[in-house]
């Protein structure tokens, strides 16, 4: 082995390793920088008022209470709509229609809907709900969010049920349990933790979605808990405050960005603890 060639190979290796370390440093520092800045600026703007007062007119102090409540209501209704649909569709894919053609097509389309542009869902709901009912409403917003959540719930439900070993199903069937009872009393008990994780993840996902709300729930500066009216919500409020020319509003937007980021992050951390639940690992 000529030593000069060996040196060149070693050099190439070192060079690439250095590049890998460097890119890890650069990439992570960018992401942590965003996180740090959002928290830093957000904390400065955060006050008790943020959680108790409504969105202020320009030049006055206010908070984001209405937007937070509105976001919570919108996401809550969206979850009510999407959890049964997503879970049942996942049940079909993993249990009743397993290996069928339809299940394959649905799984494929679902994977695509999972990362389809969320703004298209907004336009779609605008056409099917907002136009016919002649107005932006919380209902329309919740439906748009539900369309985003369904693919997430469907996918995790299917994946978790697929992990349930077949002998369990066969044992239950041998005891005379009909298929639906096998699914709901045996398979669900095993896959419970994983399915809950999927539901929580979908909640985290829609809590931060803005694009589907642009033309559906719109936004509202005032207190509103009626789903038939335009709903105040955190992402749209941040959007509007940030694009305004007023420094006061920008500060409030930072506070909102921090609230939304920390909410989503803590749900994601919570799901990690859930998946560490021994009942899931037993699969």
């Amino acid at each position: 082995m000529s030593s000069s060639r060996y040196k060149i190979r070693l050099f190439k290796d070192r060079l690439f390793s250095a590049f890998a370390v460097l890119s890890a440093l650069i990439g992570l520092s960018f992401l942590l920088l965003i996180l740090f800045q959002v928290c830093h600026e957000g904390l400065q703007a955060l006050s008790f008022d943020t959680f108790t007062k409504t969105t202020p007119p320009p030049g006055e102090k206010g908070g984001l209470a209405n937007a937070m409540v509105g976001s919570f209501l919108l996401s809550g209704l969206a979850m009510l709509l999407s959890v049964p649909l997503g879970v049942m569709a996942g049940v079909y894919l993993a249990e009743f229609g397993r290996n069928g053609k339809l299940a394959m097509v649905v799984a494929f389309l679902n994977d695509i809907l999972l990362s389809a542009p969320s703004i298209c869902f907004g336009l779609f709901v605008y056409e099917i709900i907002v136009l016919p009912t002649h107005g932006f409403s919380g209902y329309a917003g919740a439906v748009a969010l539900a369309f985003i959540a369904i693919p997430v719930i469907l996918q995790t439900t299917r994946d978790m049920l697929t992990l349930v070993p077949d002998p369990l199903r066969e044992a239950a069937s041998a005891l005379g349990a009909p298929r639906w009872k096998v699914v709901f009393t045996v398979c669900f008990r095993v896959a419970k933790g994983g399915i809950m994780t999927g539901i929580l993840l979908s909640f985290a996902r829609i809590a931060g979605e803005t694009a589907p709300l642009l033309f559906t729930a719109l936004n509202n500066r005032f207190w509103n808990v009626s789903m038939a009216e335009p709903m105040p919500n955190l992402p749209m409020t941040i959007y509007q405050l940030a694009l305004s020319p007023y420094p006061d509003w920008h500060e409030l937007a930072w506070a909102g960005a921090m609230v939304i980021t920390l909410t989503v992050l803590s749900i994601n951390v919570l799901t990690r603890f859930l998946t560490r639940d021994p009942s899931v690992n037993r699969i």
């Binding site: 996180l35 931060g208 941040i238 960005a257 939304i260």
Partner: peptide, 11 residues
Amino acid sequence: AGIPSIVFGFW
């Protein structure tokens, strides 16, 4: 990966 995209745009 879970940080909402509006936060990135805002930043």
